[in-house]
Design a protein around this nucleic acid. Structure first.
Lengths: 192, 192, 192, 192
DNA sequence: TATGAATGAGCGTTCATTCAT
DNA sequence: TATGAATGAACGCTCATTCAT
């Protein structure tokens, strides 16, 4: 009888998500307060927690959805044939992850950890990210002595590293894009 | 006048740090409460905030000092001559960073320099970590086609990646050590 | 939606007010601590601040209510027909206002309306005090060449003056009652 | 041997007073912090308390001195011969007392009370104020059926009342000057 | 589901005042 | 006198989360 989960429930959830997105668009992720979201959505505080186990679940979903959309765009493109093309393809994702320190921290925290048993939206995107990059690597002119899965993990590691350094007072002379290019060149290209 | 810091100031600060360390040793980092620290140190709460801008500043210093001590140990050893030796050398650090989720989060948060211009203790250790690893790489049987600095940054990236996956629901079948070994082998060894 | 205030809300507020009154009855106004009030009321500290913007707001309400009760008593009596009777009628109020330096200071501070637009409880009682005294003056054997409102304002001015001098090192040889009698005689009686 | 209280002591005190006045001129009385004063004066915090028993003593002195100066101006004028002239004479004082709510409160508090045994600067000015006004009343065309001292006390009471209403949300339609005129006319003029 | 008052533990703050040097 | 680190007792606040209705 799971049919009753319909209409009003979904509408309320949608109202909450929309309200949250509005808050984020105007004030950023970090500033989001449950209070403000429910007010904007026109529902009671308790209702929020009937739809999301906690505030983190909302954030996870929101940021996860955003990353997913970016991965959709990335996956829709033809596989890049060189490092430069790969970096170009990854940049929208990189930019999103550096839009707020809070977002970066949250992504790192969810990079897998959030759930013990259940994988949340953000964690799921990591898996998808790996697949997308693995796929790229399969046919391309890249290093062949390692599995594409391992190479993809490295791409992730270097992406995180590059982002970390954006938030760092040191090393700011190099741009995010240049740093990522540097890393991926070193990591992915066959050695002479 | 910028006169020298008084002896009493140093003593009080030491009392606070010692008290904090005692709490951490018995209850862990996350459980530390400012209230408890000042009580144990026998100073007023106001004094705490005269020495540390907030609880986080104390944690930064404490964890930074701990990492520094671990780096001292690492630096004191002879340079490892293979991946296995390098992983052995790095493991104490890796273990500390994974001792508590709270510690890992805090390290990540502080990794990119607490403030714009001022680098906090933890952030500083990242620089030192790079130096130590760079030094190892100079003489060893490692990849020679990249600068040691770049290689060291990769070691950092893969270390973080390996640690992240410890707190991750996926991929837990592989141990931290094995994963780090895998990564560093792929990253540092000359290609065939 | 501005729905009616819930019963529980009223109950909690009542619990807080009652607890506060208990503290005051046993230890006086100045000794009141928010901590103690919430403990006695059996509610959380956060609840206190959900009901009263700060400790001062509680005090304002408490003292305002007390003055209101005294004004009720005063208004219930028949109008005094001479200065002596008027002073008798006013004395309970005067005594309350001089019961604690803290109370007097607080009354003075709130006398001129806590905020720009919003009049707090204490400030409100000043208006009511004026009305009560005005009413007395209407029929009595008092000065007729001035409006009762103006006369009432004078009564207030002299009351404050008399009270101020209670807390004063000088002039203490005359009692509060005698001083008020002196003032009101000069102010209210028709001149020969 | 009280001669040693000279030079440096007085210089330090002067520095403190000057610094305090600077703070007040730029930020007002309420915002004055001992910290800022000592910094501006270039002395240590402890030094402040070697010169003033507490912050209040400084305020008392500062405000007292200010009122005294205003009373000097008032006393230097010829005695006013009517209510209007009297109000004119009193206005500078009234304006100072209404410049900040904080100042008014402090004056009320010190209107006598501050000292148990010793009368402070502000309290002293009240006495002087009474004398000045009494002197005016002696020769003028004012009510003769009451002692000039009592009349002067009334002037004080009505001054305070007029000032109180300045800080009041109600009654703001009438200006300070008009209200004082109204009060003093009713109080001081012989009745028809 | 929806409601929204209540929770609650701890952090940070305040800043005049004290006191050992 | 001068110094300035230390004091200290509340207060206010935060804000995600819970729970009785």
């Amino acid at each position: 009888m799971a049919r009753a989960i319909q209409k009003r429930t979904l509408q309320t959830r949608a109202k909450l998500v929309k309200a949250a997105q509005t808050v984020i668009d105007t004030q950023g992720y970090e500033a989001l307060r449950v209070e403000q979201v429910v007010q904007l959505a026109g529902v009671a505080k308790g209702t929020f927690f009937a739809h999301f186990s906690d505030k983190d679940a909302l954030m996870d979903q929101l940021i996860g959805a955003r990353i997913d959309a970016l991965l959709d765009d990335i996956a829709a493109q033809t596989s890049p044939q060189d490092i430069s093309g790969m970096v170009d393809a990854l940049m929208p994702l990189m930019n999103f992850m550096t839009c707020e320190r809070y977002v970066f921290d949250l992504i790192i925290r969810h990079s897998g950890a959030a759930a013990r048993e259940e994988i949340g939206p953000i964690a799921t995107t990591f898996g998808r990210h790996g697949e997308v990059v693995s796929h790229w690597l399969e046919g391309g002119p890249f290093r062949q002595d390692l599995s594409v899965e391992l190479l993809a993990e490295g791409v992730q590691a270097f992406s995180i590293q590059a982002i970390s350094l954006v938030f760092c007072a040191l090393h700011n002379e190099i741009s995010l894009r240049d740093r990522l290019t540097l890393y991926l060149t070193a990591w992915l290209l066959p050695k002479p």
